[in-house]
């Protein structure tokens, strides 16, 4: 692909870290504790109200940054736990506009920055500019885009520059150094470190590939003062959070929280969040 340079545009993420609420939150967590805990839950699961209560419970139990997933019919990066939850949300009538309702309601109750994790087509259909404006109005911080890379993301780069929204791009163990730099330079808030080659879901061990990838990201400029390196996929325990935060700026947990919410409701997800958050204080 040759669109890289034109897509890159005038701004690089590094100058903007201080202006990003997510970036500031992660930096603060790294000076106060071992690092930041980022918690994922899908909007609309088990219900819209239930997902709002669960997200609030995450923050009240030590989650620093919320990642709210927007249910989508074809989630190629998600494993079975999250697929089941988002499919339930869709069957219950989830609409994109529910994301803004959720962001606004959560922000009214707790003070944590909220990123939306969304596949690309829903925001294309909503209108990227309109979606961004509505997200700003709701008090959201930005987007994590699992199927949109920097070189294919010219429109989102322009819109996020205009609105100041954070944009979190993914990096993988197979990414070339050139592509790692592209992601670091254009991510704002943090850069998502995909710990292992696979889809979302709890794993016994967090791949050693994650540590190597974080080292490689550091070499191309990732830091809490530019774009933090936060590791996701496979993390499900406080011990794993602590282990990851020994080398990364943040740990992202999804499936373990979704499973707790499925099986034990808001109280269950609160317990798991607290256990995970303990890993940030070791």
């Amino acid at each position: 692909m040759t669109a890289v340079t034109s897509a890159a545009g005038p701004t690089a993420g590094s100058a903007s870290a201080a202006a990003s609420p997510v970036g500031r939150t992660i930096a603060r967590a790294n000076s106060d504790r071992a690092g930041a805990l980022i918690g994922y839950l899908p909007v609309g699961f088990p219900t819209l109200a239930g997902s709002i209560d669960a997200a609030v419970a995450l923050v009240e139990n030590g989650v620093d940054v919320l990642e709210l997933g927007l249910p989508y019919t074809d989630p190629v990066m998600d494993g079975p736990v999250i697929q089941r939850a988002t499919q339930t949300a869709l069957e219950n009538g989830f609409r994109l506009r529910d994301a803004f309702t959720a962001v606004e309601a959560i922000r009214a109750r707790v003070d944590a920055p909220i990123l939306l994790m969304t596949y690309y087509n829903p925001i294309v259909q909503y209108g990227i500019d309109r979606f961004a404006d509505d997200l700003v109005s709701a008090g959201g911080a930005g987007l994590i885009t699992p199927d949109l890379t920097v070189d294919s993301g010219a429109e989102w780069l322009a819109t996020s520059d205009r609105t100041g929204l954070d944009r979190v791009f993914l990096t993988a163990p197979t990414s070339t150094s050139e592509r790692l730099k592209l992601a670091v330079d254009h991510s704002r808030g943090f850069v998502y470190v995909v710990s292992t080659m696979g889809v979302t879901g709890a794993r016994g061990d967090v791949d050693s590939a994650a540590r190597t990838l974080v080292d490689r990201l550091r070499e191309v400029g990732a830091s809490t003062s530019t774009a933090s390196a936060c590791v996701g996929i496979g993390i499900s325990t406080g011990d794993q959070v602590a282990e990851v935060l020994a080398y990364a700026d943040g740990a992202i947990v999804g499936s373990a929280l979704v499973r707790a919410l499925s099986e034990h409701g808001v109280a269950g997800v609160a317990r798991v969040a607290a256990e995970l958050a303990a890993g940030t204080r070791r």
Partner: peptide
Amino acid sequence: GGRFMPESLIAA
């Protein structure tokens, strides 16, 4: 056309 894919698959 284009390529709207997870970064994990770009190298492949």
